[in-house]
Structure formats: structure tokens, C-alpha cells
């Protein structure tokens, strides 16, 4: 069964078919939420809210990229979570400023990766997460969708309910800002990830 079949079945009220779609996209949706929100608890809330909203409104899906449609929902769920976080700034700060010595649990280790490499990659992840945290929400979302989730400009525009031109400019500014941050923080990165350690 392909995605379209599941979508049509889900639109007819088949919860099992919808859960097949959930299984196909939950990782990506959660990852996006995690990148944007910076902590596992908020990311879980946003992901769950997103899938519930998707289930409620699946009949409104009129074709096109289901992934983009789903990511638009999770993007909105992330905005909601960010609003909650802004009302509780201390929790937000704690969550955003990950301690590199005590990296967030639940990061995925590649099968071929040595524990040492994985530890270094976790440090990299923590630094990037801090860099993302200083970006404006819109830029952070755009960069997460394009550079981490690999969406095309069109898909990202769809997911962010905006146009391709806006995606281009947000992405350009987000990349430049993150680049400036990472250059500044280079000393905190494991040697192999530094800019002049050549070909990361």
C-alpha cells in the first residue's frame, strides 16, 4: 500500500490507515519539532498536537505533498509551543542552552559510529542547538525544514504557509546568522568539526 492509499483510507475515517501515516512521518515530525523547540518535552507535545490536528483535519488535505502538509501542521504546533515557552522564559532558557557536557538524552547514534565519535557529534548537536536558539522563529523553522529535513524551497514554502521568495531570504539570513555563531563558537567544537580542519 502506498501513501495515497493510506491517505484516502484515513480520510474515510480509517484510524489504522492514519496510524500507518503516523509511523511513516512521526520521526521527521518529531525531529523538526525538536530542532525548532530545542527540548524533548515541548517537541513531544508539539508532535502529539500535530498528529491529533492532522487526524481531525485529514479531510481538508487536497493532494500535493503530504509531508509538507504535515510539517505545516507541526510548524503551527511549534509556534503554539513557543508561545507557551515565552510565557515561561526560565524553562525555555534551560531547555535551549543545552549543556555540552551533559547532552540531551535520546539522540540517535549511527550504527557504524564509535562511542567517541558519537560523543563528539553530540557536542556538535548541542552547539548547533544553541545556535538555532538565537535565530528568530521564522528563520529557525525555515532552516530546520530545508537544511535538516531536506525540504525543497517549494515544500518549505508550503509548510510555512509562505512563498518561495520568503523562504529564500529567511534561509539565507538564517544560514548566515548560524554561520557567524558557529565561527564564533568554533573552539567549543570537536577538532574535526572546525572550519579549517578541512572538509567536514
Amino acid at each position: 500500500m502506498d501513501e495515497q492509499t493510506f491517505i484516502r483510507a484515513a480520510q474515510k475515517g480509517d484510524g489504522a490507515a492514519f496510524n500507518q501515516l503516523v509511523r511513516g512521518y512521526q520521526h521527521q515530525v518529531y525531529r523538526t519539532a525538536y530542532r525548532v523547540l530545542g527540548d524533548a518535552a515541548s517537541a513531544q507535545d508539539a508532535t502529539q498536537d500535530a498528529f491529533i490536528a492532522a487526524y481531525k483535519h485529514i479531510r481538508a488535505f487536497r493532494g500535493g505533498s503530504f509531508k509538507a502538509w504535515l510539517l505545516r501542521i507541526v510548524t503551527n504546533a511549534c509556534y503554539d509551543q513557543l508561545r507557551v515557552k515565552q510565557r515561561r522564559p526560565s524553562a525555555s532558557l534551560d531547555a535551549m542552552l543545552l549543556d555540552p557536557d551533559n547532552p540531551a538524552p535520546g539522540l540517535e547514534r549511527a550504527a557504524s559510529e564509535s562511542p567517541q565519535d558519537f560523543a563528539e557529534r553530540q557536542e556538535l548537536g548541542a552547539t548547533i542547538q544553541r545556535g538555532l536558539a538565537i535565530l528568530p522563529h521564522d528563520q529557525r523553522m525555515t532552516l530546520a525544514l530545508v537544511d535538516i529535513e531536506g525540504l525543497s524551497y517549494d515544500e518549505a514554502a508550503d509548510a510555512l504557509s509562505t512563498n518561495v521568495g520568503t523562504v529564500k531570504s529567511r534561509l539565507s539570513r538564517a544560514r548566515a546568522a548560524l554561520r557567524d555563531f558557529l565561527v564564533q563558537q568554533q573552539e567549543l567544537l570537536p577538532a574535526r568539526y572546525r572550519l579549517n580542519s578541512e572538509k567536514v
Binding site: 496510524n19 518529531y30 539522540l107 572550519l195
Partner: peptide
């Protein structure tokens, strides 16, 4: 810039903390 994008892509992905399937009725 190229370095930045490459780093972003190498950041470890968070493991899925749990399944997000919904307790919805079957067909």
C-alpha cells in the same frame, strides 16, 4: 556557509521518544 550547512546536517537526530500513533478506531 557550506561548512555550516554540513554541520547542521551532521547533528545527531533525536531518537523518537515514543510512538505517536493515535488511539483511534480502526476502519
Amino acid at each position: 556557509l557550506r561548512w555550516t550547512i554540513a554541520l547542521v546536517k551532521q547533528a545527531p537526530a533525536p531518537a523518537l521518544p515514543r510512538a505517536f500513533t493515535l488511539p483511534v478506531p480502526t476502519v
